[in-house]
Amino acid sequence: MTALLRAELRKLTTTRLWLWMLLLGVAMTGATTSAAIGFAEPGPGGLDTVAGQRTVFAQASATLVVVAILGIIAVTGEFVHQTATPTFLTMPRRGRVVSAKLVTYAVVGLAYATTCTSVVLAVALPWLDAKGVGVVLTGTDVARTLLGVLAEVALYAVLGVAIGCLVRNQIAAIVGFVIYVFVVGPILTGVHATSGVAQYLPYQAGNALGRLTSSEGASMLGQTAGGFVLLAWSLAFAAVGTRLAVRRDIT
């Protein structure tokens, strides 16, 4: 299994994609962190409040889109470039290849999130200091926010791999994911009638991990529960995807 993990990491690092995606993640995180501080308004979510500062320190979650797409490409790219053939010739037990990708991209997601979290800190700490805003979060609060975002981003990378297994068509998988995260997820979570159910769907479960404060009125699981729900979705997608799509004939 370690050989498969090293091979997956090698596949990622021997093309340029990882670098562009990391730069994209860093740029997005820098932008959203700047926006969270620069456009903050006084009030219940202001910079000097706990809720406001949690929002600022959770901005590395912007990179979840990037790592999820990376995870989708990790699987669908094998079919686009027909490398699925040598991959499954070398390791005919396809479930193990999928498992290796799930684990590898969890680690990759962590690495991206760690990098982007250092961007958040590098932007936020000096800026807040310059504004004369003291950090009101407790040490535990900061740790739970930062570690929660790490877990959220890592699990989104895993979710991406799982989506790629389920939907072998690369464009469809990426477009479907982006529409869910930016449109369907927020609507289901925000609408009162569906909010109770939506907290168990990947979008709001992910939010529970990194954003300890829910947006107004929306139901949200606790941090740990949210993490397990997001993980469960990924494993379910990967299991179903492996059975239905990855096991299909490679022609």
Binding site: A3, R6, A7, R10, K11, T14, T15, H81, Q82, T83
Partner: peptide, 24 residues
Amino acid sequence: LEASSFHPGRSGRDHLRVYCTVAG
């Protein structure tokens, strides 16, 4: 099998090394 089951951006050497890793 097919004439091109390679990632276009990966070098021939890296392509082979990936499968060296899997096969030990």
